[in-house]
Design a protein around this nucleic acid. Structure first.
Ligand SMILES: [Zn+2]
Length: 213
DNA sequence: CGCATTTGACCAGCGC
DNA sequence: GCGCTGGTCAAATGCG
């Protein structure tokens, strides 16, 4: 396929901004449903690729995502996970694929609902205007996974320089949050996968691209 | 019991 | 023209 974002250019910046409008990502990959030709002659789909470190915490950007698929892509020893905003009317989709040591998050679309916020911890004022233009507007918490690559970055697309403060997020809170537990589970899975891939990694080692037909 | 997750199958586009 | 990949949906299962 037209894979132009392979491993080759992104090798210095952790995050990348790919502005690609005019893209119909809502193709009908349906199995037996009627095929709806959503021809979006114009634009409407944005693709934002963000590379993060081994911080699995990036799994949740503050929004709720529902995993709707997982597929292994060539060139990656890790399978790509497809997430969709849990909001009933949120067309925002998120794809997370892990590389040997970093996560590639691909966000598409824009939330049409008020951005969620972390609750029970540091609840800032609700002076959050309704500028739902940015996709990620949640403060990242300090990840304490394995202390591999403290790569932290956030996209400040909105002129809101008030809620970009990495508040102390104690990860010892796992008693009531039932949904949060989900995240933990995912985390564990990811870890497992990472570990599994670790052995695979031994085989491919620095061979990132080799298969290719 | 409910919900989110999981896995498989299918389709569509592009490549050769 | 066929093959391949990537992507999405559906249904089933497990866990809380
Ligand atoms: Zn949303």
């Amino acid at each position: 396929m037209a894979n132009n974002n392979d491993e080759k250019e992104s090798s210095q910046d952790e995050k990348e901004f790919i502005d690609q409008d005019d893209n119909d990502i809502n193709n009908n990959g349906n199995g037996n449903n009627n095929s709806n030709n959503n021809y979006n002659s114009g634009k409407g789909s944005k693709k934002l690729v963000i590379e993060t470190g081994s911080s699995i915490d990036h799994l949740d950007d503050g929004f709720s995502w529902r995993k709707y698929g997982q597929k292994a892509v060539k060139g990656s020893i890790f399978p790509k996970s497809y997430f969709k905003c849990a909001e009933p009317s949120c067309p925002v989709k998120k794809q997370v694929i892990q590389q040997d040591l970093k996560f590639i998050n691909t966000y598409s679309g824009k939330h049409n609902h008020d951005p969620p916020e972390l609750d029970g911890s540091e609840r800032k004022k609700k002076s959050n205007n309704n500028n739902n233009n940015n996709i990620l507007s949640s403060p990242k918490k300090q990840n304490n996974f394995n202390g591999q690559q403290p790569q932290q970055q956030q996209q400040q697309q909105s002129p809101n320089h008030q809620n970009i403060s990495i508040p102390p997020q104690p990860q010892s809170q796992q008693k009531y949050q039932s949904h949060i537990n989900l995240k933990e589970q995912l985390k564990e899975q990811l870890k497992e996968q990472l570990k599994e891939a670790g052995k695979l990694h031994s085989e491919i080692e620095n061979n990132l691209n080799d298969d290719h037909n």
